[in-house]
Structures are given as structure tokens and as C-alpha cells.
């Protein structure tokens, strides 16, 4: 029997469950390797060559090269692991969050100062926003 995944209808959200963790194992382990300074240097020197040392799918490697975080998440990445990639690029969590929402970092930061993204209209796919 298939597992019940009630979170599948939350808009703009991928829950890092056991299936995603299985898909993303090598992608996340690659990202984790960037915790070490010498690996960060090797990755920065030749990203493609460093990625080829890992048993990732080509799609995952392309998503990393493009810094397409939404794609990486769809392919099994988890944000705390992927954070090692944007940290290697010298970028913050807020930079990455803005990128994933399609907003500029300034717009995103202003949204947070204004109280963040409202849950209204964001709870269910197809939910009508009140505001």
C-alpha cells in the first residue's frame, strides 16, 4: 500500500521524506563534502570534475552547475545540505530563499520585514487568497 502523503498538496513545498532522501542521497552527500575547506577549493577549481566524482544523476549535476535550488530539491536535495553549496559561493540563506521564490533579494527581505509571506492562499494548491 502506498504511503499517505498529506503534504503533497502544499503549494511550493517539497517535503524531504524518505523517498526524497533516497533519490537525493548522493546529491546531499556531495553537498555535505563542501563542509571541508579542501573540498570547497577543489570544487571551485573545477566544478564539473568534482561533481563527476559522485554517483549523482546527470540531471542533479546540471541542477548544481546551474545553481537551480528548486530543481535540486525536486531531485532529492534538502535545504540544509544544499546550504553547503551556497555557503561555498559566499551566499546567505536569505539569498537562496529569495532565489527559490523568484523574487530579488531586496524584495524578499522587504517581504520578511513586512511580516513574511502570509499563509492565506498558501495552505493548499488552488486555495483562494483572501488578500
Amino acid at each position: 500500500m502506498a504511503l499517505d502523503k498529506p503534504y503533497a498538496d502544499i503549494p511550493g513545498t517539497t517535503i524531504f521524506d524518505a523517498d526524497q532522501a533516497r533519490r537525493g542521497y548522493w546529491l546531499n552527500q556531495f553537498a555535505m563534502s563542501l563542509m571541508k575547506a579542501e573540498n570547497r577549493e577543489r570544487f571551485k577549481a573545477n566544478e564539473r570534475a568534482y561533481l563527476d566524482e559522485w554517483k549523482m544523476t546527470e540531471e542533479q549535476k546540471q541542477a548544481v552547475l546551474a545553481r537551480d535550488y528548486n530543481r535540486m530539491i525536486a531531485l532529492g536535495g534538502n535545504i540544509y545540505f544544499l546550504a553547503k553549496i551556497f555557503a561555498t559561493d559566499g551566499k546567505s540563506f536569505q539569498y537562496a530563499a529569495a532565489l527559490m521564490t523568484g523574487m530579488s533579494q531586496e524584495e524578499y527581505a522587504q517581504m520578511m520585514l513586512n511580516g513574511g509571506r502570509s499563509p492565506e492562499g498558501n495552505r493548499y494548491i488552488g486555495e483562494k487568497s483572501n488578500g
Binding site: 503549494p11 511550493g12 535545504i79 527559490m100 521564490t101 511580516g115 509571506r117 499563509p119 498558501n122
Partner: peptide, 12 residues
């Protein structure tokens, strides 16, 4: 929420 297009969600 730190991930995806719904990042930035806050529910006061």
C-alpha cells in the same frame, strides 16, 4: 520555510 517558492512563510 527555507525552501521552494513558498519560502518566507510566517504565521503570526
Amino acid at each position: 520555510q527555507l525552501q521552494g517558492p513558498r519560502a518566507g512563510l510566517i504565521n503570526k
